[in-house]
């Protein structure tokens, strides 16, 4: 029980902190002492190719459905961002791709 709660809190914190590291370093890539996370950032391709991200992600769980009107597509992408654990950048790139 103790270990479970600890493990759970630990894993969550690691994920959250890792996310912070990447966020911070993305904002200030030149800040000293951030070599490790800067390396992570450097490895992340920017900008994300919407077409590729759509193809890779939108058939993971179901057949890719038809497009909706842009405002509805924005809502659906918020929904799918949660369901599919997408990053903000992937969500934006796919939304852009689906509404152009």
């Amino acid at each position: 029980m103790k270990t479970t709660a600890g493990l759970f809190a630990g894993l969550t914190l690691i994920a959250a902190l890792a996310a912070k590291e990447v966020t911070v370093s993305a904002n200030k890539p030149t800040q000293p002492g951030m070599a490790a996370s800067a390396a992570i950032t450097a490895a992340i391709p920017t900008p994300i190719d919407g077409d590729e991200a759509y193809k890779a992600n939108c058939s993971r769980c179901h057949l890719p459905p038809r497009k909706f009107a842009p405002k509805k597509m924005a809502t659906i992408m918020m929904h799918m961002r949660v369901r599919a654990n997408l990053t903000a950048a992937e969500t934006d790139a796919i939304l852009k791709y689906l509404t152009q």
Partner: peptide, 20 residues
């Protein structure tokens, strides 16, 4: 932990305004 790591400006899903 989540609140602590949230930057002041959260990310948006683009410029298009989502609807219910």
């Amino acid at each position: 932990a989540a609140i602590a790591v949230a930057p002041a400006r959260a990310q948006t899903a683009g410029e298009i305004k989502p609807v219910p």
